[in-house]
Each structure stands twice: as structure tokens, then as C-alpha cells.
Simulated assay, not measured.
Amino acid sequence: MRNLDLTTLRSFVAVADAGGVTRAAGFLNLTQSAVSMQLKRLEDGLGLALLDRSGRGVALTPAGEQLLKYARRMVDLNDEIYARLTRQDWEGEIVLGVPHDIVYPVIPRIIKRMGRDMPRVRVQLISSYTAELKEQFARGAVDVILTTEADPAEGGEPLLDVPLRWYGAAGGSAWKSRPLRIAFSRRCGFRPVAAAMMEQHDIDWELAVDSESDRIIEVSVTADLAVTPVLEGHAPAHYDLIPRGVLPDLGVQKICLYGSAAKPQILAPVLEMLRAEFRALGTRGTEMAAQ
């Protein structure tokens, strides 16, 4: 009787989900060559080609598509059994704070993984601005926070550098108007950065919206009434990136991680999940920039 190797199935699922061996290696904390060897071992064991490597990226063959649903179920079941039977110390509650503009794509994956690997841990997710999250963290009201800031404060760990870019409505022309109309939330941490660059480059500008609602900001930009600064890759799908050179460069912001020293048994694996996800996100961004 032949048995499938769960390690190779896990690598196969990771490659299918990530869309490439390099990004999957980042998720798995393995080298690219190790993941490639596991995929070859799986293909050799089944006597089937699972990946179509003829194109620029990696695609699944018909056999690979058929295997994927079974492989995902087997890996998930394995992890659920392990978590429920062996990690009795993973029990409690975690309050996770994340700025609204970086919730996607990482946080849904983290929560899903925690539900699978740490079923006795309840996650309370809150979304707010960096300054408010740091205040709550200092009071002990939040266990783990992510922030977007130029540099982390004491105790913060930089995870990823992300360019701050100008965005406007799809096909819009608000970026051409003078005074330039800019939409900021009152508590947006990017507001002083953008304002300083406007002054430095002597660009006439005005506030298009004075609101604490991010939804109102989004509506104003979508209606081509204003432009707004957003972290590259984190803008709504209906925004257009304004080409470089048209407006002043806004530099780079860091996505930073702060974790409490309390609850080490359940916080330590969550912090590692976050580090791994953002490491993989950074690898994917580098690959896309190189294409």
C-alpha cells in the first residue's frame, strides 16, 4: 500500500495558493530548492505531472487541480487533529489591532489559520488608526498591533517597507487640478507626510473632505473629487495609481509589529504567523516589481 507524504502535500498546497515556488517557500519557512524537491518527490510518487512549468509562472495541470482539493483536506485535517490533541495550552483570547488599510490580504489568512491550528483561542479583531492602536497597546487593552509609521517606536519590530503612493479615481483627472484637492481622514497618519511634501514642492492644495470616516474619503476619491495617499498595493480595486513624477514622492512607510509580553504561550505562534505572512508578502512584491 502506498501512502502520500503530508509534507509534500503541504508544499503542493502552498505553491498552489501562493502562485509560485518562491512565495510558497516564504510561507513555509523553507528554501526554494527544498520546496522544489518536495514537489518533485510528490510527482514521482504519483507518476503524474502536477505543475505546468512551461509558462512564466506556475500553473496546475488537470491532475494537479484534481489533487489540490484532496491535498487541502488532508493537510487541514492533519493540522486540526494535531492542534486539538496536543496543544492544550493554546487556550484563551487575543485582541489584535490592525490599521484598516492593511487588513487585507494578510489578516484573513492569519485568522483562518488560527481557527485551524489554535481552535481554543478566540481572536478579537479591532481596526483603527496607528496612533490610537499604539495608545490602546500602551494601556494593555490590545495584545498585538500592526502599525504603519516611518519608524517603529521602542518595542516595535519592522516587518515590511511599503511605498506610500498617490491614488485617484479610475480614469480620473482630479490629480491635474490646482489647487490639488486631497482627501484625508482627520486621524490619518499619512496626512502630515503629504502636507509637508506639498509645502516642500510649493504645490497649491486644499482639503477636499474634512471627515473621520474612511468610507467618505473613499467615496470622494472614487467620484474623482480628490486624490489621497495609500500604501502601494493596499488601495481599493476601483482606485488608479497616479504615475510617479506627477505628484511629489511620499517616501516609504514601515509596517511594524508590537506584541505584549503577556500570554506568551498563545502570542508567540501568532507573532511568528504574522512575520511569515509579511515576509512572503514582501517576496511577492519584489517579484512583481521585477516583472
Rank of each mutant, 00 (worst) to 15 (best):
S173K: 13
Y70L: 13
L225M: 14
L271A: 11
R41D: 04
Q136S: 08
Q38L: 08
R186K: 10
L60A: 02
Y104F: 12
I126F: 10
R279E: 14
R72K: 14
L274W: 06
L30D: 08
I242C: 03
L30H: 12
A59D: 11
E199L: 09
T61R: 09
S33G: 10
P152E: 01
P108K: 07
A223Y: 11
E149W: 01
F184P: 00
I111D: 06
C256Q: 04
V103C: 06
L281E: 09
P264Y: 03
G168N: 02
D214H: 15
P179C: 10
Q291H: 11
E80I: 14
M273A: 07
V230S: 04
E232G: 07
D204K: 12
N78G: 15
R122K: 14
Q32K: 07
A63Q: 11
K40R: 12
G155A: 05
T286M: 11
V142Y: 08
D76S: 15
R87H: 11
R113D: 13
D76F: 15
A25E: 00
P119R: 02
R73H: 15
E287Y: 04
G168D: 03
L225I: 12
L250Q: 03
A150P: 08
V95P: 07
Q265I: 08
A131P: 06
P62Q: 09
T86I: 11
E135I: 10
D79A: 15
S211I: 00
Q88M: 09
M198P: 05
R139P: 11
E132G: 13
A276P: 04
L39I: 05
D151A: 15
A138I: 03
V252G: 04
V13A: 02
A63C: 06
G64M: 08
Q136M: 07
E287L: 11
L241Q: 00
A83W: 04
R73Q: 15
I145G: 00
A280Q: 01
H201Y: 14
R187Q: 15
G19D: 01
E277W: 09
E154H: 14
I94H: 13
T222R: 15
R186M: 02
A169I: 00
L39S: 01
R56Y: 14
G92F: 10
D151H: 14
Q32L: 06
P99I: 03
G172Y: 07
G26N: 11
I81F: 15
L85P: 07
S173N: 13
I107V: 10
Y239V: 01
N29A: 13
I111C: 11
A174K: 01
D210M: 04
G233K: 00
R113S: 12
V58C: 10
V35M: 07
D249P: 03
T286V: 15
A24H: 00
R215N: 14
A34K: 12
L4R: 02
D249T: 06
L159C: 09
E91P: 03
G47P: 04
V144D: 03
T31M: 12
G251N: 03
P179I: 15
R113G: 06
I111V: 13
I110M: 11
L225P: 05
V106D: 11
E157N: 06
Q136P: 01
A289M: 14
R122F: 10
Y129S: 08
Y70E: 13
G168C: 05
I217A: 11
E287K: 02
G189N: 10
D204C: 06
L68K: 04
P158T: 02
W175V: 00
W90T: 07
A268M: 08
V35Q: 03
R187W: 10
K69Y: 14
